[in-house]
Amino acid sequence: MGRYILKRLLVAIPMVLGMTLLTFILMQITPGNFLDTIRMDPQVSEETIGHYQKMYQLDKPMFQQYIHWVYNLFHLEFGYSFYFNIPVAKVIAGRLFNTFVLSLASFLFTWMIAIPLGIWAALHRNRWIDRCIQFFSFICLSLPSFLLALVFLFLASQTNFLPLGGMHGPDFENMNFFVRSMDFLKHLIIPTLALSIGSIAALQKIMRGNMLDVLSQQYILAARAKGLPEDRVIYWHALRNAINPLVTLLGYEFSGLLSGAALIEIICSWPGLGSLMLTAVRSKDIYLVMANMLMGGVLFIIGNLLADVLLAKLDPRIRYDKKH
């Protein structure tokens, strides 16, 4: 197993670098660069632009810039953000937690609702309750999340029950820990809901499908025939096997944990990485984009690897090392 993991990780390095190279080239060859915004200021001269160019090292040839970046990477330096004038790592660090909390909240919320819902729907297959759930799932799947966020915010503004965007109330500095946490949780509700509703619908469908698959298997029949209590058959034998395929999904979710959701973040004023990236991509803040892509890439690799390893642990039929 250890060898397998090592091999996968070694393969991953050129992949991630290749991805960043592609990103870099794409950012560079498309027209426009970061300094264009400054260029539109009537009071800025050509020389000043030149000075900025030098400061951000935009005057060097493209590949030299990239190699320089990779070189610095091995010294754990991720470059400088043009837009924010500070190292990229600091920009990202300032928002990492926010994105993580939101992703985690919506992840937990999704899985905690969707899995039981899927099981319940499967056990009541084709009865009206199942039909209702499936129909609503289709509706939820077809609503864009940013629209949901806007609707929630509008409702919140009418009822005054939930805060309108942001992460904290305006007075959060003067709050004690408990009040502050409550305040934070309240702010978390709308973006979490907006992000989760679609995924709940999707995950619920997958879970229901898996459960139905497993319930029609021979060994469940056998277990029932043996006279095991129904609860045990379902929650011990069936459930375990129905959840296994979801592990791959879990790995995928892991890789998305820090990618953020730009539109929701913008609408809910949630200071996460998604909206940061959107501006970075649009204003060509190259190194900020690169660092984020790198992070996303690494998480993607780890997530997939984690899923494969977990799958092997859970399912004895899967073996990665041929020698065993």
Partner: peptide, 20 residues
């Protein structure tokens, strides 16, 4: 003076109407 960073103009409007 407190500046809230709000990216969406709509949300800004809602916040003003709400009084915050």
């Amino acid at each position: 003076i407190i500046y809230l960073i709000v990216q969406s103009a709509d949300v800004e409007l809602l916040k003003f109407l709400e009084g915050s």
